[in-house]
Design a protein around this nucleic acid. Structure first.
Lengths: 141, 141
DNA sequence: ATCATACTGAAAACCGTTCGCAATCCCAGC
DNA sequence: GCTGGGATTGCGAACGGTTTTCAGTATGAT
């Protein structure tokens, strides 16, 4: 079967190779924020002939085609998620590494306002919150 | 004379070597967000014997001592600014690379609220806005 | 099927950063 | 002041994530 992302790629006119099909499938099935190594691991379990270089290249291709989005969570490597229309941000649980997505129209509006007051038009932005669960806040790490 | 940051380092009990003095001076005089290479360039112009490895080590030392703060602006290298009590964020002019600092208590409050609603206590956060000047927004890059 | 073109795998190059080690410096104690 | 020993330095090598090079392979327009 054709994965969601594969359909999107075809739609955008990208040449579909076996590797790209597999990577698209992996990304379609992911509901987390895998890094390149993790995508490669999952892809290789479907077709072991896929090299990490190809994963890197494909991620870039898909990013440029706006099929996926790069997420920089400050851990020194790129993570990815499917592109989506709605802006959202990430709350990272520093205890477990769990990533929680959230959106806030008010926050978006406030950012727009701040930028406008500074004489700028927003072309991109990012917000990350690092936190610990409220009910564990006094525990030792 | 003793630079602002040098005094702070002494106060924190750090051993003051010639190199650290020079780097402290460079950072005290900086009103931008230099990366390690730039700090090294400026330090070397005062004392050419300073190696980049020492700059890296000293930046980490000063960061750990909370004398300076690391700023990750998504360009793949660490930038630094003097530590300050008030939270602020950065608007990056994508045309020129200029960095504008801004603070917004309302934004801080909103972030706190969002985290609390998700059941988390904030231990860190970061917000960057990338923008172009309003009066140039329709120009070609 | 054929063919030009685009893609792939493997290894090398890259870039920012850290580390290992021998030489050097700082400063507490004399 | 001088000294001794632990901290710091400079150098180059190593590192981790990412990009590139290049020869070989696959793709899909014809």
């Amino acid at each position: 079967m054709t994965s969601r992302l594969e359909a999107l790629c075809v739609e955008k006119g990208l040449k579909m190779t076996g590797q790209r099909r597999v990577i698209s499938q992996v990304l379609s099935e992911a509901d987390d924020h895998p890094d390149v190594e993790e995508v490669h691991r999952r892809a290789a379990s479907i077709d072991p002939r896929i090299s990490i270089a190809t994963v890197y290249r494909t991620m870039r291709l898909l990013e440029d085609a706006q099929v996926i989005e790069r997420v920089d969570l400050g851990d020194g490597r790129a993570r990815y998620e499917e592109a989506s229309a709605d802006h959202h941000h990430h709350l990272i649980d520093t205890r477990t590494g769990r990533i929680i997505e959230f959106a806030s129209p008010e926050l978006e509006a406030m950012k727009e306002r701040i930028a406008r007051e500074l004489g700028y038009k927003i072309v991109g932005h990012r917000l990350e919150i690092y936190g610990v669960p409220l009910d564990e806040e006094d525990e030792r790490q």
